[in-house]
Computed example of a mutant assay.
Amino acid sequence: MAYTNSSLVTYKRLTNNRTSPRNHAIDTITIHCIVGQWTAKQGCDYFATTDRQCSANYVVGKDGSIGLSVEEKDRSWCSSNAANDNRAITIEVASDTSHPYAVTDKAYEALIKLVADICKRNGIKKLLWEADKSLVGQVDKQNMTVHRWFANKACPGDYLYNRHGEIAEKVNAILGGSSAGEDKETPVTTATLYRVRKTWADAKSQKGAFKNLSLAKACADKNPGYSVFDENGKVVYSNSVSQTEDGVFTPYKVKVTDSALNIRKGAGTNYAVSGVIRDKGVYTIVDEANGTGATKWGKLKSGAGWISLDYTKRLV
């Protein structure tokens, strides 16, 4: 097969960290997070100069730039698995440096366009995602893989991992196909996708879009305060008693049990301290979130910040 590279590339610098040629036809897409809000140029320059034996076929920058580091005819050294990298196009996407390793809107949009272009040129008619490691290599059932399946890593981070179903949906819309993971005999419409959000109106809070309801429920269970919505915006599952039927968060009061509870600027110990609660008083929580350093974080009604709910007692 005569391989080509994407015409969407805005910067090219090839690395020697590659195996040439790849030994398998391209039939898989593997998306990574680069753990740094870099441009494509910065990513490609890094792979071209690093002493580490690592690389990727493409780098998607925070500004939507797209870099070519390893040509498609060659295998990158990206996923800790030679068999996967020989059959996959690997893409590093600029991301935040901490959980959930979020990417910018420009990077996300560029990623969708790049993946669609790769699929078109390599005969991948539909992108399939079932979030099932046991399906690796069974490209008729699932042709997206993730680094965390091959190594003890968080890659591609929960932000991108939870959006793999949505990525497949958007790419397939460009390709003219159906949603991810469909039965070949029965076309699936986007109405079968379940979206995990704080509220239906808060699209930016979305953790993922899933064909499988059980996968959507599992995602919601990992994110307190989130619900599963059908395509019409109706709540079909919620993991929090603080959610009403329409998915709107219901504030509640807690009593602080710690003598010096830090208030942080965000939901996690990785955020700066903005104040300290010392009075063991009663406070109103208007939102919840997962984050490092606590089972669950609560947002104060005053707007002062977030506190660990591990050091509070909820009041009825």
Rank of each mutant, 00 (worst) to 15 (best):
D27H: 08
S227N: 15
N84E: 11
A48K: 15
I29R: 13
V241Q: 14
D45A: 06
A304F: 01
K255W: 02
A173Q: 13
D279Y: 02
N232M: 14
D63R: 09
T4G: 11
S69C: 09
M144Q: 00
V9E: 06
A289S: 06
A304V: 06
L315S: 09
N162D: 14
E109Q: 13
I277H: 11
R75N: 07
L309T: 05
T192R: 15
N81V: 08
G123R: 01
Y311S: 07
Y108P: 05
Q142S: 11
N17R: 11
T284E: 10
V248M: 09
T39P: 08
A107K: 01
A191D: 15
G298H: 03
A267G: 01
G225F: 12
A110E: 13
F249E: 04
Y11S: 04
P100Q: 03
N239S: 07
R75P: 01
E288G: 01
E130F: 06
G303F: 10
R121A: 12
L175N: 02
G137D: 00
I277A: 09
V171E: 00
A110F: 10
E288F: 00
K41L: 04
T250S: 10
D202Q: 07
F249A: 03
C44T: 02
V59K: 05
A56G: 02
S274N: 12
F47N: 00
A203H: 11
N23A: 09
V248R: 10
T244C: 11
L215E: 15
I174V: 15
L215Q: 14
A272C: 04
F229G: 07
D279S: 05
H24S: 05
A154I: 14
N17G: 07
G208F: 06
V136N: 15
V103C: 10
N122D: 04
Q37M: 14
D51N: 11
A260Q: 13
T104K: 00
H99M: 15
S98N: 05
N17F: 01
T189N: 12
G281R: 06
D105L: 10
T4P: 06
E109V: 05
N16Y: 07
E288T: 02
A2H: 13
E169T: 12
K211V: 12
E182I: 04
D140G: 12
Y226C: 03
V236T: 14
R314F: 01
T145I: 07
S76V: 08
T15N: 11
S6A: 04
Q243Y: 05
S240N: 01
R264T: 00
L68F: 12
S55R: 04
K301G: 02
V171H: 03
Q142G: 08
K301F: 02
